[in-house]
Nucleic acid binder design. Structure first.
Lengths: 240, 240
DNA sequence: CGCGGCTTTGATGTTCATCAAGTAAAGTGG
DNA sequence: CCACTTTACTTGATGAACATCAAAGCCGCG
């Protein structure tokens, strides 16, 4: 993950056939036939392998991204590498790009794939143009934007108010309920990344996962996690 | 502050004369004459006194708000009153409403005036309609939205990575530079609210303010604060 | 095979929340 | 307007929660 190679978009591997795009309802719900066609032509679709970086903070903003399939992390790095914070994990249908692309000239956050991921890429100027020509589409973007950022803020508020056990419980439930919709899953992140996501040290992430294992709340086998006592986990999440 | 009375908007006191609206450039930059006129007619303007609540979380979303003049806090309450968190302080030109109004049916956060404040209020359906009919305006809202939420997230990241002294330094600099543009100001919030804003206890807010006073970094007289050694304060903000 | 990063556990120390107690200030009712 | 109540502010003492440091095993990779 640390040595992630940078993906180049100059030569797209695939041009999306929009007729089968799972995101049709999002992007095309409000667009005319011509606009839809124009979008298809401008859009490139790229498969990014687990561990690869999609964009890095500080680069000039050229593209709008959305996740067609897979899982990515949005994160902020600092001089002191150990201060890195993960802002959120983004799933298909999340417009993670929305955070900065509409008001700034440089990406403020970096984005990397946690699983093999298909990203759809549109030139930002093109997106801005079709929004300017299509009010309902702009409204759609506002709804999505509002939803994504509200969720991020809500996460921060939630995590802030919890002790370490509560945070681990929260993140496990988030993986089970929001990300995988299963109580048995393979953690897509390292212990260190969990720590960066919920603001604690790697050692304590491990320690508390071990506690939960000893208390028969979860079963752990490397990256495999199974939630055995969800009621208990919910209790810990709610009341430390 | 705790017993803040609720402001009612049924009978607006003043109807805004938009020709002198300081927010003309924001709201009207992209609108036609007719639209501008329609906005003027739909808009009501209200003076909210310090301490009064403007909206409460959980209420159905009916209006879009923006701050014409004054200072407000956006905050989230919990059953346990001491878990209240202040999300941000909003100044004129901030579209604090943007957080939830475009995707939800209830306000998620409460908003109260920290100083006598002039709020402009537009029915949310009306705002959505003109956006749907006016792409450039929608684009303008996206820019503002993107900027506001990015700042909130940036605040969280900043505060998260700092110890208590760093947090106090950060918030003092924020008041001096972003809010008042002066190094001598009257704190618009109680020590408790400072605590809710930067995630610490009231006692420690006071303790560290006292430390800074003893170290001649600031001068304090009740709510009056003067920054005496800004270089030092910046150092503490950056490196604990 | 050996190196570097990830994982795990234990021991130690620091930071910070909590508790307690008192003063000052501000609002409330007679 | 004054007694009364409540809320805000302040300082100190204590303990708990959490970070840091250290050491060792593990795994993947060149």
């Amino acid at each position: 993950m640390e040595k992630a190679k940078k993906v180049e978009f100059q030569n797209p591997l695939i041009t999306c056939d929009c007729s089968d795009c799972v995101l049709r309802t999002l992007m095309f719900q409000y667009t005319s036939e011509e606009e839809a066609l124009a979008i298809c032509k401008s859009k490139i679709q790229k498969v990014v392998m687990k561990g690869e970086t999609i964009v890095s903070q500080g680069e000039p903003i050229k593209n709008f991204f959305y996740i067609k399939d897979g899982l990515v992390k949005l994160y902020r790095q600092f001089q002191n590498e150990k201060d890195t914070q993960i802002i959120c994990l983004a799933l298909p249908y999340d417009y993670v790009s929305l955070l900065t692309v509409f008001h700034d000239s440089e990406y403020r956050y970096s984005m990397a794939a946690l699983e093999d991921t298909t990203v759809c890429i549109l030139p930002i100027d093109f997106v801005k143009n079709i929004i300017r020509n299509n009010g309902p589409l702009g409204m759609g973007f506002l709804e999505k934007s509002s939803l994504s950022t509200d969720r991020i803020i809500n996460n921060y508020i939630t995590i802030n108010g919890r002790n370490l056990r509560g945070r681990i419980a929260f993140i496990l439930l988030d993986f089970a309920d929001r990300v995988y919709h299963r109580d048995f899953f393979e953690l897509p992140v390292s212990r260190k990344e969990v720590a960066q996501l919920i603001g604690m040290t790697t050692e304590n992430v491990i320690r508390i996962l071990s506690e939960f294992r000893q208390e028969k709340i979860i079963r752990i086998n490397g990256k495999e996690i199974e939630i055995l006592d969800k009621k208990r986990l919910n209790m810990i999440c709610e009341h430390g």
